[in-house]
């Protein structure tokens, strides 16, 4: 008991020393900037709240379950009824397959950097430099590139073209996220595994994969969130369709593009559906973000080291 009191006394003393000198200008300056900082943080949280509230408010009042169950049908943007089932399914197809493809390539790339190239500092730095460069490339450029790629290979606008474009777009995001996690794997782990006689590929796909599993899941969900929310990259490679896609060569309308088209419609009822669709998309994104927090916490315990 005695001890504890002493400790709190000391804390109080330290705290009082940390306080600013209580003389005119010095104090005034600190108080001024501290209140500015508080305002800045409150502003950020407040704006987040306002955005979510207004999307939810507008969305809940215009939402109906039938929207989830009906295809658009012809004349959707001309206020002839219909839902957004095909857009939701199309978006899911598109982003799930793009995420899977990007995971296959991205995982290999991140492993290559962290397991195979780890001793070649120069090559590794150059590779990370290039990756950082494309990490910042905006999605509309992938859209334009995907379009010219499509023309080059003679593919028509389709789900397939969309998948390829979105894969390229989320690849740098995925690799960077996985790479960040793999960098933290202690060198001792790989040294001991190698010294036990395992090959580098076994080290990669048996040890690294398991050790970094939570991080990889987070990276996948991050990339998936980007893929499902992005409109600019798929605007002109997937074409438009009012029906649920049944094959890779079908045209497909994605949810973000549907929202964009709906809100630009002259009919108020169709614009209302845009609010509801934006609400659905936001819910999906929030769910993904929650899920990724939960999973990365839950699987932390299965790591090796």
């Amino acid at each position: 008991m005695m001890e504890e009191k002493k400790l709190s006394d000391i804390r109080a003393m330290v705290k009082s020393h940390e306080r600013p000198a209580r003389t005119g200008r010095k104090l005034g300056e600190e108080v001024f900037f501290r209140s500015l900082m508080n305002i800045a943080s409150v502003l950020i949280v407040g704006v987040m709240g306002i955005i979510l509230l207004s999307i939810f408010y507008k969305g809940v009042s215009t939402f109906s379950w039938s929207m989830l169950l009906e295809d658009m049908g012809s004349g959707f943007y001309l206020n002839r009824g219909g839902g957004i089932k095909n857009a939701i399914i199309g978006s899911l197809y598109l982003s799930l397959s793009a995420t899977l493809l990007a995971l296959l390539v991205g995982l290999a790339c991140a492993l290559c950097m962290n397991v195979y190239l780890v001793r070649h500092r120069r090559i590794l730095n150059a590779a990370r430099f290039l990756l950082d460069l494309i990490w910042g490339v905006p999605s509309i450029i992938y859209g334009a590139f995907g379009f010219s790629l499509m023309v080059f290979f003679g593919i028509k606008t389709s789900l397939l073209a969309g998948i390829i474009t979105v894969t390229l777009f989320i690849l740098p995001i995925m690799i960077r996220a996985i790479d960040e996690v793999m960098k933290t794997v202690p060198a001792g782990l790989s040294e001991s595994v190698l010294s036990m006689g395992s090959t580098r590929s076994e080290l990669s796909y048996k040890v690294y994969l398991r050790q970094c599993f939570p991080g990889i899941v987070t990276a996948v969900l991050l990339a998936f969130g980007r893929a499902i929310g992005d409109a600019a990259s798929v605007l002109y490679v997937t074409g438009e369709s009012a029906r649920t896609p049944t094959s890779l060569m079908d045209n497909v309308t994605t949810l973000p593009v549907a929202i964009y088209n709906q809100i630009n419609s002259p009919h108020a009822a169709t614009q209302d559906k845009a609010y509801a669709s934006a609400f659905i998309l936001t819910l999906v994104i929030l769910a993904i973000s929650l899920l990724s927090r939960y999973i990365s916490k839950r699987y932390q315990k299965y790591r090796i080291y």
Partner: peptide
Amino acid sequence: AIDILAGIPSVVYGV
């Protein structure tokens, strides 16, 4: 709050 802001899709910001 920042994480949520980062996740919101561009189109939703537009709306």
